[in-house]
């Protein structure tokens, strides 16, 4: 895979959060304790490609998404978006670059200003980035986009307020606001998690269409593998700050390799009462990220763990045809 065609290239991304401890204790310790929320991960995404990022709660998905677009400061790593070195940008230049990358959150109500009409909310990024020459032109752009995301009649929707919309409609407003600046890259963080099944399908369809039409690179963060299947060309699985497996969606669904991925796949409830599976489940709970197991981080819960797992580095290795796994023992 040549990196030049990638819209997003992230290498060795780290985000350590400082841990709050009593100051006296802090004075005594040489090394400040940290939460290694994201620990040295790399990935790239091409245009018109969606990379899924899945994994259980607390594995670091949101932190990856936010660090990648510098909504939070990464501890370390290099990030290129649309051939621009994002880590070297500061102040005004970072602000200007933001029109190329946007994020969609889980709760549309929390990300919209309740006192601003949705038309104005979506127009706002155009004003910030100086796109369009006057109000009339910008309004035209918003109305056109409202048609595209199916907020019709667009003229009527323009003046509505968030509380006058259903959950699915609100999320479509948020999506419209994210793509109005014609970005190259979208991070979607559990954007469909709060929606009812039927509405979820509808929003997924919309994302799929926009991805095609705008040739977007998508980082699709979700804990719902079934939703990821419809959107993503490839899927990366995270566990405790590390990517443990990456493969094409089909590969991952047909031949999951990493023991954690297998467990994750097996845990998805299937809407068919005739199917009774024998599920392998991990032992215990996800360890605290402040007290990570040495070696393979999945060791404490892995049904296949053995002595060697205590000293290995969780390096992703190609197991054939771009299927990467961090477990060398399961092939």
């Amino acid at each position: 895979m040549s990196k030049t065609e990638s819209v997003v290239v992230v290498n060795n991304l780290k985000k350590y959060f400082p841990l709050k401890i009593p100051w006296l204790e802090a004075l005594r310790k040489k090394e400040k304790p940290t939460v290694k929320a994201v620990d040295n991960i790399s990935f790239d995404i091409k245009s018109n490609e969606a990379l899924g990022l899945v994994g259980e709660s607390g594995s670091g998905k949101t932190t990856v998404g936010r660090s990648t677009i510098r909504l939070i400061e990464p501890t370390n790593g290099s990030i290129k978006i649309h051939n621009q070195d994002i880590m070297s940008l500061k102040g005004e230049s970072l602000r200007r670059a933001r029109k190329n990358f946007q994020i969609i959150f889980q709760d549309p109500m929390a990300s919209l200003n309740p006192y601003m009409s949705i038309g104005k909310s979506v127009m706002h990024p155009l004003e910030i980035h100086n796109i369009g020459s006057n109000f009339k032109e910008r309004k035209e752009m918003v109305l056109e986009l409202f048609d595209k995301v199916n907020l019709k009649p667009s003229k009527e929707f323009f003046n509505r307020f968030p509380r006058q919309l259903s959950g699915g409609q609100r999320q479509r407003v948020v999506i419209a606001r994210a793509i109005i600046t014609n970005p190259k890259f979208i991070v979607s963080d559990e954007a469909t998690a709060m929606l009812d099944v039927s509405v979820r399908s509808q929003v997924l369809k919309l994302m799929l269409r926009l991805k095609d039409e705008y040739k977007l690179a998508f980082l699709f963060i979700t804990h719902d593998l079934a939703s990821a299947k419809y959107i993503c060309e490839r899927i990366a699985v995270m566990y405790l700050g590390k990517i443990v497996e990456v493969a094409s969606t089909r590969e991952l669904f047909e031949h999951p390799l990493h023991p954690y991925t297998k467990i994750l796949m097996g845990a998805i409830p299937i809407p068919d009462p005739t199917i009774k599976r024998n599920k392998i489940m991990p032992k215990g709970e996800i360890p605290s990220p402040t007290n990570m197991p040495k070696g393979c981080r999945f060791r404490t819960r892995c049904p296949y763990a053995k002595k060697e797992c205590e000293d290995m580095d969780m390096e992703l290795t190609d197991m054939g045809s771009n299927h990467l796994s961090a477990c060398p023992f399961i092939k």
Partner: peptide, 22 residues
């Protein structure tokens, strides 16, 4: 329609269904 709109994990079924309206 509700059952049809549930996302599934069958890799060969890539069609998304939803119930129009509210």
């Amino acid at each position: 329609l509700l059952l049809k709109s549930v996302p599934n994990i069958k890799i060969d079924d890539m069609e998304l269904h939803h119930i129009p309206g509210s």
